[in-house]
Design a binder for these strands. Structure first.
Length: 872
RNA sequence: GGGCGCUUAGCUCAGCGGUAGAGCACUGCUCUUACAAAGCAGGGGUCACUGGUUCGAAACCAGUAGCGCCCA
């Protein structure tokens, strides 16, 4: 290959970036080259993040895309910084939702899971998983996720199931798992127990009915929103100090409609201020009443079955709970028992997180984790700084939860999931069976399965081979960072903390927890399946490219902050990718190179851009450390667009056109700056940077990749070059503003005489100034028709040949004068204030004095210009 | 009911004691050979309200109003 041929080939980038031509090709190449694989045998320090396992039933939404962008950026950057970076992929089995989906499919065939039987049904779910579970991995490939696919895990895999059984057995043996009859949240539609946090509370319109129990002097009025539960009342409770009812405590009243007599009891938990101060007690159908019942040895009378159908004998038997309510109120009314009815009465009602059905508190025998000691350890790990939560404000939520935690109901009346490893003997014995143990002959296994979060809680180490002492586990545990939305802090993060520390000898599962916000639609509403306002990330990627979506997400990801989706912003991110594309295209056309060391004796503008690059590297590193993705992205956006493209490339054009050694040096600096910029951007926008970096460096033939290029380190800053270029920018901008105000066409060149450049330190840059401001040298017939005094030093005389719009110029100067006067007034007022002079720090006073002086000279200069204007 | 947080330009947000900022949107002029998915220039804010602290408050304190989230 000849030297001439190569640069020629390198200029052949099309004028627009076409993501579709690049993305799938690059991703396939990365996978083929094994770029994502992490090795436990590596000498490099480990950097580990596990994917928050998506539900196998679903597909990724924008919230996942945001989370994946963050994780991918962190791990890609870690890899470039020399870490053995592992991003662990996988999915969870999503017990309730998956079972629901498959049951719905069965229903279409007119079948229920009971028609199939347990074994066949579970087989059916596996079939479904194998058929449809692939959608998510396809989405991840489109997003560019650099996950180690060879390590992909599923919570129902054999190894992970073994981990579940192992930890269950350990917790059971440590008496941290127990079975008890309690009031739990029951979903009558899913027909299973739910944990507290799987219940969503909303303010719903209901009714408040006041009912008189007993008769005459021995009557007492109670209020309820759930009249149908009165069939199961076993007491009426009042506060012990409530004088109104003191005479009734210890007596019995007749329960309407049933003829049963129930006691009036005194309990300190009754609020005498609420309603009549007397409450009906239904221990089998309300958690608070259950506690009262326990304290007073009341019978638990269950009057509804697991479908929410009334089972109490009598006229209401067989009615659904929502039919029974009006029927019972009507009967009470007919009986003269209803004292008052409030309708609508707004109160908090619990709903099943998965299907939104109203949750029924139900007395039943379930398995629980005793979380007290586990939560204590999890809280301490954050309190003593072993685990840091970003942003720190979220720590309060974390603490309030681990400090006030309730035992965790882990059994679910489902078939899809990890079956509880407890076996019952013929005489009521029970045994917990470990992974390599078998239950005694003839014993029966508990029919229930475990909450999905029980297995998700093991994710940071079960995916690495635990309970085996694997090399992977030793290398990659604890994880470095855990990134997820703040909405699942309790669902998942706390539980990983509890189980991780329990299983791994007190070592927390990760060092940093990064919590980002939720995605909202354009109206600011939270995106959710039930609202139907979700956006498919694939649609946005199809329209604008993966990098555009990723850059948009990164640029709007703040610790704890929500993100509003707007098509125009994704478009703006797409435009940014195109800008990068064209900057590199220009560089290639200009012969930019990455070969050899940076030359000495660089020009001021070369030193300036290198100084700005150094500051950008520092800024990007600092923001990454703080998980400030928005600020990190903004720093790169600003550097790339405003400094490299808008100024450095424009400043380079005349130098490159000139040719010679100066041009060679600039070609080298240009190559260096773009090389560094592409590396810095790669973790966020992997595809376009790979394509451009390979083109710029010629790395394609070497089988190279920006993925494994070293992360830039900050170079020297050059304050002197920065000051000079700042002055140059001010001068050029001032001339451009004048031109624009005067209505001069952008391309129109204007003969101009510049004076005072030497004093301003800009003498060496006159040709650059002329190039950027489109100013020609004055000819023989030069006549200054307008004068600009830009700073104290520089005067610009322009020959606009009578085209001067005096009114426009006067308006502009008047405005500038007003601003300068306002500034002068402010400064003078401050400096005339003795309190300010006496108490303000010296540097502040000096700064104000400086500003006062500048304002004064501005006023003098502008006033002179105004005076020099021809009369209107 | 308890707790936490928010209120700054049309939108989304940054700034958290010392000249009110960014991106997008908007207006004007331009196809100036990297890019019209662009360039250049510009307009736009009593920093929710009321008090207080301070030489100085968007920022600190107290209260008010509205909004949001979490937990019960």
């Amino acid at each position: 290959m000849t030297n001439e041929a190569k640069p020629q080939a390198r200029t052949e980038l099309p004028p627009q970036y076409a993501p579709a031509d690049v993305e799938s090709r690059r991703y396939a190449q990365w996978v083929a080259d094994g770029r994502f694989a992490a090795s436990e045998d590596s000498d490099k320090p480990a950097y580990t993040i596990v994917i928050p396992p998506p539900n196998v039933t679903g597909s990724l939404h924008l919230g996942h895309a945001q989370d994946h962008t963050v994780i991918d950026a962190l791990t890609r950057r870690a890899r470039m910084r020399g870490f053995e970076a592992l991003w662990m992929p996988g999915m969870d089995h999503a017990g309730i939702s998956t079972q629901n989906v498959v049951e719905r499919n069965l229903a279409d065939e007119g079948l229920s899971r009971h028609d199939l039987g347990r074994e066949a049904f579970v087989e059916r779910v596996w079939q479904w998983k194998n058929e449809y579970g692939g959608k998510i991995s396809g989405q991840m490939r489109r997003l560019g996720d650099a996950v180690d696919w060879d390590r992909e895990r599923f919570t129902m895999d054999e190894g992970l199931s073994r981990a579940v059984q192992t930890i269950f057995k350990r917790l059971y043996d440590d008496e941290l798992i127990y079975r008890a009859e309690r009031i739990i949240n029951w979903c009558p539609r899913c027909m299973t127990a739910l944990s507290d946090i799987e219940v969503e509370h909303t303010d719903d319109e209901g009714e408040l009915v006041s009912i008189r129990y007993g008769d005459g002097d021995a009557s007492i009025v109670v209020a309820t929103t759930r009249a149908e539960t009165m069939l199961g009342d076993t007491a009426v409770a009042v506060h012990p100090d409530d004088a109104r009812y003191a005479h009734l405590v210890g007596t019995e009243v007749e329960l309407p409609l049933t003829g049963r007599r129930i006691p009036v009891i005194a309990d300190a938990h009754v609020d005498p201020e609420f309603g009549t101060g007397a409450v009906k007690v239904t221990p089998a159908h309300d958690p608070n009443d259950f506690e009262i019942g326990r304290r007073h040895d009341l019978p638990n009378l269950t009057v509804m079955d697991e479908r929410g159908t009334v089972t109490a004998h009598g006229p209401f038997q067989g009615l659904d709970r929502f039919e029974a309510r009006p029927a019972i109120v009507a009967a009470l009314r007919a009986d003269g028992r209803v004292v008052e009815e409030k309708r609508p009465y707004v109160h908090a009602v619990g709903h099943c997180e998965r299907c939104k059905t109203t949750v029924e508190p139900r007395l039943s025998k379930q398995w629980f984790v005793k979380v007290g000691p586990l939560a204590k350890a999890a809280g301490d790990a954050v309190r003593d700084g072993r685990v840091r939560i970003h942003p720190p404000e979220q720590e309060k939520r974390y603490f309030s939860w681990v400090d006030n935690i309730h035992d965790w109901c882990i059994s679910r009346q489902l078939w899809w999931g990890h079956r509880i490893p407890i076996w019952y003997g013929p005489d009521g014995e029970q045994v917990c069976v470990g992974p390599d143990e078998t239950a005694p002959e003839g014993w029966r296994q508990d029919p229930d399965v475990l909450d999905t979060w029980f297995s998700s809680a093991l994710w940071p180490f079960s995916t690495l081979g635990w309970p085996e002492d694997t090399a992977s586990l030793r290398k990659f545990y604890p994880n470095t960072v855990l990134s997820t939305g703040y909405d699942i802090l309790f669902f998942w993060v706390v539980r990983m903390m509890m189980f991780g520390m329990y299983a791994m000898d007190g070592t927390p599962p990760f060092k940093d927890v990064f919590l980002h916000g939720l995605i909202r639609d354009e109206d600011g509403k939270k995106m959710s399946k039930s609202r139907g306002n979700g956006v498919d990330p694939l649609d946005l990627m199809d329209a604008y490219g993966s990098d555009a979506l990723r850059f948009f997400l990164a640029r709007n990801t703040t610790p704890g902050g929500d993100l509003v989706v707007n098509d125009e912003w994704v478009q703006a991110a797409r435009n940014f990718c195109n800008k990068l594309w064209n900057a590199t295209r220009f560089a290639l056309m200009s012969g930019a190179t990455v070969e050899g060391p940076l030359p000495d004796d660089l020009s001021t503008t070369d030193r300036w851009i290198l100084s700005r690059l150094a500051r950008t590297v520092e800024e990007v590193d600092a923001q990454y450390e703080r998980f400030e993705f928005a600020k990190m992205s903004a720093a790169l956006y600003h550097f790339a667009w405003d400094e490299v493209c808008d100024w450095y490339l424009e400043l380079s054009k005349p130098v490159l056109a000139e040719g010679g050694e100066a041009a060679d040096r600039t070609r080298r600096v240009l190559g260096h700056v773009l090389d560094s910029l592409l590396r810095l951007l790669h973790p966020v926008v992997p595809f376009v940077t790979e394509e451009l970096w390979l083109a710029l460096t010629g790395g394609e033939e070497r089988g190279d990749s920006v993925m494994v290029a070293a992360w830039p380190t900050p170079g020297e800053t050059d304050p002197q070059a920065e000051a000079t270029v700042a002055a140059l920018q001010e001068l050029v901008t001032e001339v451009r503003r004048f031109r624009s105000d005067q209505g001069l066409k952008p391309g129109q060149r204007v003969a101009t005489r510049l004076s005072g450049l030497t004093e301003a330190g800009l003498a060496a840059h006159e040709n650059l100034i002329r190039s950027l401001a489109r100013l020609d040298e004055p000819g023989d017939d030069f006549t200054a028709t307008a004068t600009l005094a830009v700073t104290d030093h520089v005067t610009v005389r322009l020959d606009t040949r009578g085209n001067i719009d005096v009114a426009a110029e006067r308006a502009r100067l008047d405005k500038a004068l007003a601003a300068a006067r306002k500034e002068l007034d402010g400064c003078t007022r401050k400096l005339g204030n003795e309190g300010f002079l006496a108490k303000a720090p010296e540097d502040v006073v000096a700064k104000i004095r400086q500003r006062q002086a500048t304002a004064e000279s501005d006023i003098t200069r502008i006033t002179a210009q105004l005076a020099a204007l021809p009369a209107a």
